[in-house]
Nucleic acid binder design. Structure first.
Length: 909
DNA sequence: GCAAGGTC
């Protein structure tokens, strides 16, 4: 750059008004700084004189508010019915300045005309670089001779800003290109899929969540759908969870100093027999010997400096504030100058930050002021330079207080809370960690190891100011190695595994953060969008569940085999954007490649739209507008829930079924033969099936898929009286409902796949676990007769039951641990006698055990498992330390001798 | 009536 010469006019543009002001104040050193209004009421113009490398400059400093332009399709493609949505993959797009940004554009037009240079002070990230090119486009349009320069700065501090202006560089086209590509891909994918699925589903189904169907938009977006995917996936995981009973041994010891609870170092066992055997060993030799006493100092560190996502997560955890509300309130506090810029990824303070000055500001606060004073007093040793979490967006510092307040009268409760969180978090960051003394004691009882631990907090330090976190302390008696004692209680306790909880808002933010879905400034928007679109709901505990609509959409795409609802698509895009931003790939190359793939995916999805329709049909009634699928094909009342009707439907694989309308609450279903090509509910009522009316169905079978002798046309009944239908189901099966390629190739907890199997109910007794060919109700009239289930081979011989006097049948176990092993099991439902055949040969006596226990082979075949059961606390029971658990013959859940654990009414409460 | 990203 030339130095000296006449003064030139330099137009400086920042990304937001606050940065324009800060830069102007720093560069002008607050001397001779003038400010005037521009065309836009938010974006002032600052004027001052400055010399860049000796060149005298008259500086005009103004700002935009984020992006100045928007990408959209050209007019003729804007209307929804103007074109085939598939055309949106190549429809021309253009960047325009939207109406609400025109004032800013006018300011730039006017100021650029009289300037020789344009210096771009946009944030130093990819979006900032892209906005820089938008500003260039606007300014160059009115002044072709503008010299373009870019200021690079990583913080709004004097040295950085002066250095930046003295070392101006060129704008980075690669960074801007990466954003252009992202914008175009997002627009084309979002618009095409949104139009497609909205127009496909909106009028076909009665979607109850929308008050006005015309306003219902079923949007698709590369960020909103993966976010929904996280919610649905967790929901499915919970649905698929089958509680499993486990067993653990607990040991307590009371002395003059208090009580110690020793936990079994094996944790817990799912094998009841093993647990009982070990427990029995402990009962027989209950003396404990202390093998290890370990004392150590533990530190609990304060959190890292506050980034946006952490602020959102913590406000959700501590105050149950939604991320959207958090950002709204944080923006308010920022605008009023109380906290720093709230959209930041940075979680470490620059070494140049004057942290002491920030603490000093807080000394006068009535609540935490005294803590701030202690921090500043070197005598307390409370100060500690904060550690960082390793993230730095190079644009903004961590969120911290910028102005003292003991609370403003106009603040809402949320303003008070959020300001308090920001201040306390900041004070915690510059404090020493809490210090605790932990004692761990290990004991040996009959060769089994148990451990107990206690903690005494020696110094609370940062916990004194960070009231949102706690660190539990508990005291245990002191022990010495070699010391021996007898337990106060020694118990065999049962519990059941529990499903994971629904995703909380903090969990969801973590999932998004980890997968790179959205940015710190937009994550809360995506979450809100799911609620606005009726895709998900949030309960009082800030936990998210999918709505029927959300689940149906994800299920539909999943059934197509697409991962459009998973984060991979976005991750791949992000990877490509990175490649563009470092010059490894060109924008054109990435766009062409990505759009070609997405268009193919779109066209394929359209071919497979029946999957979406079927998934929706599981949850929603067809609307009258959908003439082809008129609603109201009621077959009979549901014999399972007794509340809803069973209706004829085509399932997701194109096969017919009769399912309860209350799905998914009631999963009663009758799967019809795969050889059925047509099925229509008639007005004829079956004369023999009860409870009535059961409407007959007119079936048409595919000729080549049924045996000779059967008619392709058949008026059938699903109520249980129809022998022809039963035979065809046995012969043809119930259609190819093979879920391969469907949900969750990545997960074993694929509930829908599992529920499909579970849903395969016997058409006669409506129970799952067996097919109609095995239904005992058709032979003996007794449902109890097959209670040992389908995983057991039938009995071969019998011996008298030594427990109740009836007989025991010899069976073969088919469980993972004992497959092929023979055992005798009492035929009586009231008796629980059970004996391994090889134990007879070994001279072991028979034993009674709860039928629900892990080692009892009857468990897996039976229908003993209820729904979701409670946690360990509710299930814990005690067997006296001197009692013999093997002769107890009583329920291990409640101790009642009249029944066993599998039949216990307290299970699941 | 569509996306996601800036910001007021």
């Amino acid at each position: 750059m030339a130095s000296g010469g006449r003064t030139i006019n330099v137009l400086n543009v920042a990304e937001k008004p606050s940065v324009a002001k800060a830069v102007a104040v720093i560069l002008s050193r607050n001397q001779g700084l003038r400010v005037r209004d521009g065309r836009s009421r938010y974006n002032k113009i600052f004027e001052f004189d400055y010399a860049i490398r000796g060149q005298p400059c008259h500086m005009l400093m103004t700002s935009v508010t984020g992006h100045l332009m928007e990408l959209d399709f050209e007019d003729r493609y804007r209307k929804w019915h103007s074109c085939d949505p598939a055309d949106l993959y190549q429809a021309p797009v253009r960047k325009i300045v939207p109406e609400d940004k025109m004032d800013i554009k006018r300011t730039l037009d006017e100021e650029a005309r009289r300037c020789q240079w344009l210096v771009l002070w946009l944030d130093c990230d990819r979006e900032g670089e892209n906005i820089a090119f938008e500003v260039i486009e606007v300014c160059r349009a009115v002044n072709h001779h503008l010299v373009l320069r870019r200021a690079r700065f990583s913080a709004l501090i004097d040295r950085e800003i002066h250095q930046a202006v003295q070392n101006l560089v060129d704008p980075n086209q690669w960074f801007a290109d990466a954003v252009d590509a992202r914008q175009e891909i997002d627009l084309r994918i979002g618009a095409s899929f949104t139009r497609f699925q909205t127009m496909l589903l909106q009028d076909r189904f009665c979607i109850d969540s929308a008050t006005d169907d015309r306003n219902l938009v079923l949007s698709y977006g590369p960020c909103q759908f993966p976010t929904l995917g996280f919610i649905v996936e967790r929901y499915w995981e919970i649905q698929a969870h089958e509680p499993e009973e486990f067993w653990t041994i607990n040991f307590t010891h009371r002395s003059d100093e208090g009580i110690a609870t020793f936990n079994w170092m094996r944790g817990h066992l799912f094998d009841y027999t093993c647990a009982v055997i070990i427990y029995e060993m402990c009962v027989q030799e209950p003396t404990a010997t202390v093998t290890k006493v370990r004392q150590q100092e533990k530190l609990k560190y304060p959190p890292y400096p506050l980034s946006t996502i952490e602020l959102e997560k913590r406000a959700s955890r501590y105050f149950r504030m939604s991320s959207e509300q958090t950002m709204k309130v944080a923006e308010d506090l920022y605008q009023a100058g109380f906290i720093s810029y709230p959209r930041t990824e940075t979680d470490c303070f620059s070494v140049r930050t004057d942290l002491h000055a920030m603490v000093q500001e807080q000394q006068g606060h009535p609540v935490w002021g005294s803590y701030a004073q202690q921090l500043l007093d070197p005598g307390t040793g409370l100060w500690r330079n904060p550690s960082g979490g390793g993230h730095d967006d190079k644009a903004h510092p961590p969120i911290h207080p910028t102005k003292f307040s003991s609370g403003e009268s106009r603040w809402s409760q949320d303003h008070h809370r959020l300001y308090e969180l920001v201040v306390r978090h900041f004070l915690a960051c510059v404090s020493q960690p809490a210090v605790g003394a932990e004692t761990t004691v290990e004991i040996d009882v009959a060769g089994e190891l148990f451990s107990a631990s206690g903690r005494v907090i020696l110094a609370r330090n940062y916990l004194d100011v960070y009231r949102f976190e706690s660190w539990g302390g508990s005291v245990i008696p002191s022990y010495a190695v070699g010391q021996q004692f007898i337990p106060t209680t020694l118990t065999l306790d049962s519990g059941v595994t529990r499903p994971p909880p629904l995703l909380s808002e903090a969990d969801l933010l973590s999932c998004m953060d980890k997968a790179g879905i959205g940015t710190d400034a937009t994550m809360h928007d995506h979450i809100k969008k799911l609620l606005d679109r009726f895709y998900a709901t949030k309960d009082a505990n800030t936990r998210f569940s999918p709505t029927n609509l959300g689940e149906a959409l994800v299920m539909g795409y999943d059934d197509m085999g697409y991962e459009l609802w998973k984060p991979n698509l976005r991750s791949t895009m992000e990877y490509d954007m990175k490649e563009v931003s470092i010059g490894n790939k060109s924008k054109a190359e990435v766009l062409a490649n990505c759009l070609q793939q997405m268009k193919a995916c779109f066209l394929d999805a359209r071919v497979n739209k029946v999957k979406l329709l079927e998934a929706m049909a599981i949850f929603f009634e067809r609307s009258n507008a959908d003439e082809h699928h008129a609603a109201g094909e009621i077959v009979c009342q549901c014999g399972n829930c007794l509340e809803s009707n069973m209706v004829l439907r085509k399932n997701r694989d194109g096969n017919f079924m009769v399912g309860c309308m209350a799905f998914p609450q009631c999963r009663n279903a009758v799967w019809l033969p795969g050889s059925v090509s047509e099925a229509i509910v008639t007005s004829n009522i079956c004369n023999s099936c009860n409870p009535g009316p059961v409407y007959l169905i007119q079936f048409k079978f595919r000729r080549h898929e049924i045996p000779p002798g059967f008619d392709v046309n058949h008026l059938g009944c699903i109520g249980g009286c129809d022998e022809t239908l039963r035979q065809l189901i046995e012969i043809c099966g119930t259609g190819s409902r093979n879920p391969a390629g469907g949900r969750g190739a990545t997960t074993t907890s694929n509930n829908v796949r599992q529920s499909d199997t579970r849903q395969r109910a016997c058409i006669y007794c409506q129970q799952t676990g067996h097919l109609s060919g095995d239904c005992q109700s058709q032979f003996s009239g007794s449902r109890n007769a097959h209670s040992h289930g389908t995983n057991l081979q039938s009995g071969e011989s019998s011996i008298p039951c030594t427990s109740c006097g009836t007989s025991c049948v010899l069976r073969t176990a088919n469980t993972a641990n004992n497959r092929g092993r023979k055992f005798y099991s009492c035929q009586s439902q009231e008796c629980n006698f059970f004996l391994w055949e090889d134990d007879i040969n070994n001279g072991t006596r028979g034993r009674s055990m709860p039928r629900g226990s892990a080692s009892n082979p009857s468990r897996r075949g039976g229908r003993g498992r209820g729904g979701q059961t409670g946690g360990r606390g509710a299930d814990t029971t005690f067997v006296s330390a001197t009692g013999d658990p093997l002769s107890g013959r009583r329920c291990y859940v409640c101790g009642d001798p009249s029944h066993f654990a599998n039949a216990c009414p307290n299970r699941g409460t």
